[in-house]
């Protein structure tokens, strides 16, 4: 399997994605913004459509458009404080509206499908380089802002009082979400990308650990989901998006069952 260069490219991108998605996802889930991932994944669809239409690198165009939508969400948060989900609906409507108009007008070919479901066959060297650079910048920024992001996620008001530049960091975070989604859509696909942001984190939550360990386990589960999903998609000849999403759900069920069993064995220990 690894003798094929397309598989090598796909594996390299997958490793980066499996670190990035849960890293961003843990903050999104804890801010109760899981659906923001889904909304921005759909925004990336419009970004890709625009890129293909104007013959521009679709990953870059998706990054630019997704980041603009991320900024828009952040900006509107101040106007719809009590109706956060409404902001997502507005952004989703705008994005899907643009994407459907471009695609249905016949301005782009069938290649858009590979972004919807994910693909391992079509990751080119140029795309690999774009993904690599964007991923490295995102990971470095995330590490640099790590402490502040956790503080803001845990207690935004407290963070403001402690002197953290909350608004600026929230905008940078929107940019990081945009970058993560843009680098991930090639392999995972737009339709199931939000699962990669949320499900490994949901699995790690089951373990009830500190923040540091929750993040570590989210990345480990994300890595297993992506690699197992990718390899199985190769053997069953399907799009990797589906198998990655299914693996992540199986992993969650496995951890829940394992946890229940270990709790039951502890209870039976107590009864003696």
């Amino acid at each position: 399997m690894l003798q094929y260069s397309f598989m090598q490219n796909a594996l390299m991108v997958s490793v980066l994605i499996s670190i990035l998605c849960p890293f961003i996802g843990v903050f999104l889930v804890l801010r109760r913004h899981s659906m923001m991932g889904d909304t921005l994944a759909h925004s990336s669809f419009a970004g890709v459509a625009l890129g293909i239409m104007f013959n521009f690198n679709p990953i870059i165009s998706s990054f630019i458009f997704t980041s603009i939508c991320g900024f828009l969400i952040e900006l509107m948060r101040n106007y719809y404080k009590k109706y956060a989900e409404l902001i997502l609906v507005i952004t989703l409507t705008l994005s899907v509206g643009i994407a459907i108009t471009i695609i249905s007008a016949g301005n782009i070919g069938a290649s858009i499908n590979t972004y919807l479901f994910g693909s391992i066959l079509t990751v080119s060297k140029q795309e690999l380089m774009t993904v690599f650079i964007l991923s490295i910048i995102t990971v470095i920024t995330l590490i640099a802002l790590y402490d502040k992001l956790i503080y803001i996620t845990f207690d935004e008001e407290g963070a403001k009082i402690a002197g953290i530049k909350v608004t600026l960091i929230n905008y940078v975070f929107a940019l990081l979400v945009g970058a993560t989604i843009s680098v991930s859509i090639r392999i995972i696909g737009i339709l199931v990308l939000s699962s990669m942001l949320a499900v490994p984190v949901a699995t790690a939550f089951q373990l009830k650990k500190s923040f540091k360990l929750t993040l570590t386990f989210s990345i480990i589960f994300g890595f297993i989901d992506v690699i197992v999903g990718l390899i199985s998609s190769y053997y069953i000849n399907s799009a990797p998006g589906g198998t990655i999403a299914l693996t992540s759900v199986f992993m969650l069920i496995l951890v829940i069952v394992f946890k229940k069993l270990s709790l039951m064995s502890k209870k039976s220990d107590c009864s003696f």
């Binding site: 402490d147 502040k148 956790i150 996620t153 845990f154 407290g158």
Partner: peptide, 20 residues
Amino acid sequence: NFNSQFPITVFEVLNFHRKA
């Protein structure tokens, strides 16, 4: 103001504040 189910230890809460 905050999510009481947040996966964070007492030490982490104080330590992130110390760093801030």
